[in-house]
Design a protein around this nucleic acid. Structure first.
Lengths: 144, 144
DNA sequence: ATTCCACGTTGTACTATACAACTACTTCAA
DNA sequence: TTGAAGTAGTTGTATAGTACAACGTGGAAT
């Protein structure tokens, strides 16, 4: 049991340390797109457009937070709103061409940073690490 | 190379997803001690006291940020300042008895949450996951 | 003794966030 | 078919965390 406790303790400490740094690191690397904006824009790109409400539900954010983030992305010309013809309350959000391009640049640069950090890992370790993270996040989603 | 790319992509996505949620989760679980306060207080406890400058260096925070965080912890009665007799510019920071007690409570509750999330993992996986996180964070510290 | 450096605080500004109150629109049921 | 209830989104307000710049005070070195 002692070994198990030690592993859990390390996992907790390291996940916490990572979380503390993540925002600042992202901001330093990509001043043009904060971690939150990046995530929202990536989701729009991925889903081929969706509603603000969907973003809020998916990322556990208040709808007012999403509303303001989307306004900011719109001011930057990265997102456009298309009113749903079937329901005039709804705005379907899409990345603009410019937004998609910026997203692609940031994604490429993030990807490169991760590749550099993980350059000396062998494939088996990478594969297992990815699985562990998926499993951990899924458990967190279930247990709060 | 495709498998390697896929793993890196997953690691990136999952680390990002985790980072986005961490603060809010911590705030929900422990309203009395934010993630940042918790971390700083834990460091003081761990180090048997240290300077504000040391905290700033260790956590890559501006000294003004640390100053305000420490002020808040002091107002809550969780931290006390002892002026260094050898250098009157320096305040050595220590958790108070109350601060240490609160820290112990939060730590216990965090530990339990992690244990629950990781309950169905076997020991070998936990051990490897802990190693991977250490290795990842060490690499991030080196490569920014 | 003067200049330079280190430690910490305070003023200011910005971002992310939540909650509550509101408007506009849709749906459903009497 | 109309009125009640619910949904989508915005805006007002407040808070936390953060950085940068300017500052005061105290130590160190030439």
């Amino acid at each position: 049991m002692a070994r198990r406790d030690a592993s859990v303790e390390t996992i907790q400490q390291e996940m916490t340390a990572f979380a503390r740094r993540a925002r600042a690191t992202a901001a330093r690397m990509h001043p043009e797109l904060s971690l939150v904006s990046y995530t929202l824009l990536a989701h729009l790109d991925d889903q081929q457009g969706c509603r603000a409400t969907d973003l809020a539900a998916h990322y556990l954010l208040d709808k007012s937070t999403v509303s303001r983030q989307i306004s900011a992305l719109e001011k930057l010309g990265f997102v456009e709103r298309r009113v749903d013809p079937d329901d005039h309350r709804v705005q379907v959000l899409h990345p603009t061409a410019k937004g998609a391009q910026t997203l692609a640049n940031v994604t490429a640069s993030r990807r490169q940073a991760f590749h550099e950090r993980l350059a000396d890992w062998d494939e088996e370790d990478l594969d297992r690490f990815a699985d562990y993270l998926l499993r951990y996040n899924a458990a967190q989603a279930r247990h709060g």
